[in-house]
Write a protein that binds this DNA or RNA. Sequence first.
DNA 1: TAAATAGTGTCTCTCAGACATTATGAG
DNA 2: CTCATAATGTCTGAGAGACACTATTTA
Lengths: 249, 249
Amino acid sequence: MNAKPAHASDQPTRAQDMERPRPLTTVDVVIFTVLDGELKVLLVQRPQTEGEPFPGRWALPGGYVDVARDTNLLACARRKLKEKTGIASPYLEQLGSWGSRDRDPRGWSATHVYFALVPGADLKPMKGGNAADVRWAPVRTTSGQPGMAFDHGEILEAAVARLLSKVEYTSLPAYLLPEPFTLPQLQRMYEVILDRPVDKSGFRTRTLAADFLEEVGQVEGDANRLALAYKMRDRDRVVVFPRTFSPRG
Amino acid sequence: MNAKPAHASDQPTRAQDMERPRPLTTVDVVIFTVLDGELKVLLVQRPQTEGEPFPGRWALPGGYVDVARDTNLLACARRKLKEKTGIASPYLEQLGSWGSRDRDPRGWSATHVYFALVPGADLKPMKGGNAADVRWAPVRTTSGQPGMAFDHGEILEAAVARLLSKVEYTSLPAYLLPEPFTLPQLQRMYEVILDRPVDKSGFRTRTLAADFLEEVGQVEGDANRLALAYKMRDRDRVVVFPRTFSPRG
DNA sequence: TAAATAGTGTCTCTCAGACATTATGAG
DNA sequence: CTCATAATGTCTGAGAGACACTATTTA
């Protein structure tokens, strides 16, 4: 196959570079939180405006990279997150990118997707005057359902899979709580996300052995008795446990 | 700058969409193999042509998304891989994306990076007539060194980190061998990548328990005695082990 | 002292790591 | 028979899971 040399199309001349048609470039953010004891994801409604793709459908928050304002992809994601939730320094990591000829009716487009965890209590009472087009959707009844704009249904499923997988062996759920928090509260975050009970004793041993928490006095727990309060030693470092949480099976 | 509401820039009108300046979009591939008992990565040399960025530097193979030919990002990565190595169905997964204002002197650019594993024995004797500008570089003495084109040094480090991490608990090294292979051969792939010896008995127990291999008769091993030959049951399914390979410590 | 949650103790069983032993084929 | 590697066997200690128990606070 293929008579012309392989690198001909990879290393075009400078003139060709600049003329070449470019895909649309966007950044989307999957923002998770736990509210009312349930895992939720932030969705925005597409405008009903004439000519807009997927009018009225729910989508992940995001938008175009602004080559004048955004110095890089992470900064762009951070900006969009701040705009939607008012939170400046949440947990934020890259999930992946999705790009194809037909995911956006406006043409070849590629989106860089980020994954965020924010504490439920920190949330502004739903930002600004446009509450109607933004909502916290329960993940369990949303992910896997059809009807989302673009390929955001697929992206959401990937994000949920990543979250569930990482929760089994990392300290991620700590980012869902405002500091300081108690160990039982942290345990409940794990239970909510994994949707199964976790043994208290094992949880404590394991969590404290990982040594990513720091005692910061006492605080009222969820009962009469006081509980020890903790905060993360280093919010920039996610801890990976040597083994998984999984029960015998 | 911004008195206007936050979502104004996220959901621009159709007219604005099409005029907005677009970042350059590329796809790069980090291709690993094991040759001569050593982990290697494929690099290509940037052209010396006047006006080209990073002339003469080594870079990861890749190039622009061709909106006419490539239906999606994965197809684009697969095309570039085929062009460089002649291999059609290797292991290929997404690594992540890197995009910023200054990574490419030609302007705001974003690259979607893929991660590939190819069997050393399958390699064409360095494709076509242009052997000079392509080479298999030893990873241990390349990753972490300065001097690569663009931000490819950083990308290579991320790819190596991902590989080392995943090898600890997945069946990935099987993609570095032509089928059928023997268990000792597979064990050697783990040892080469992890750069430490692995206990034979534990390796066999663990690997066979994971049940992703299928016996396909016998084959000459690396010694006089015959060895059982195996192939992967399902090449599209990477197996995740319940625990890590790490030795006591 | 009752109630509710916070926190600790203890037993068991699995399994990875370490190392010893046996099996097989070529020369 | 020797050698080199393939394959299996056995012992042990760490630690996760399960569950019972103690501690602390308010009402």
